[in-house]
């Protein structure tokens, strides 16, 4: 009896030790991911690889005279509303810039070809529709304006 009780106790203990290890590893990895996401979120980055060109037909909307901000949104996206507000403010401030919002779910063709994994994702296009920069997550206004400088000049 005592032996089986002890064995059982040992089993329960090893189970809780494994569980505790899983908890600690999960929280450590989640912390690293959280810090990385916070650092990268919404920062416009150079687009590597092939040059991507979007036409007004692709977007179902006309391109801006100088640059276009293309925002991919979805129904279950918390930061999409704030992103919409920020980009609208930018288009009001900077003449010749258009803001086009696309529902990712209804344009999975574009989502796949542009390899969009998150909403919001913002693409910054120059006057010819070339994707100059992209930001995933809610961007800061100053960063968008900075990236636009590149799209307008470059």
């Amino acid at each position: 009896m005592a032996v089986s009780g002890m064995a059982r106790h040992g089993q329960v203990l090893s189970c809780s030790v494994t569980g505790l290890a899983v908890v600690l590893v999960t929280l450590a990895v989640a912390t690293l991911v959280g810090v990385a996401v916070r650092r990268r979120d919404g920062v416009p980055r150079e687009v590597g690889g092939d040059v991507e060109l979007l036409t007004s037909d692709d977007l179902d909307a006309s391109l801006g005279e100088r640059a276009t901000l293309v925002q991919f949104s979805s129904a279950f996206c918390q930061p999409c509303r704030a992103t919409r507000r920020i980009l609208s403010e930018v288009t009001e401030m900077v003449p010749g810039v258009a803001h086009v919002e696309i529902d990712a779910e209804s344009r999975l063709d574009l989502v796949r070809s542009l390899n969009i994994m998150r909403t919001p994702t913002v693409l910054i296009l120059d006057a010819s529709g070339r994707v100059v920069k992209r930001a995933s997550g809610q961007p800061r206004k100053a960063d968008v304006i900075g990236a636009l400088g590149l799209a307008v000049d470059g």
């Binding site: 912390t31 959280g34 996401v37 990712a104 779910e105 999975l108 994994m117 909403t119």
Partner: peptide, 20 residues
């Protein structure tokens, strides 16, 4: 934990991944 500590909703991000 990501939601509690960083305000990042991983579950929400799954929507587009699942749709894709």
């Amino acid at each position: 934990f990501l939601n509690a500590a960083f305000g990042f909703c991983l579950g929400c991000e799954m929507f587009l991944i699942i749709r894709r």
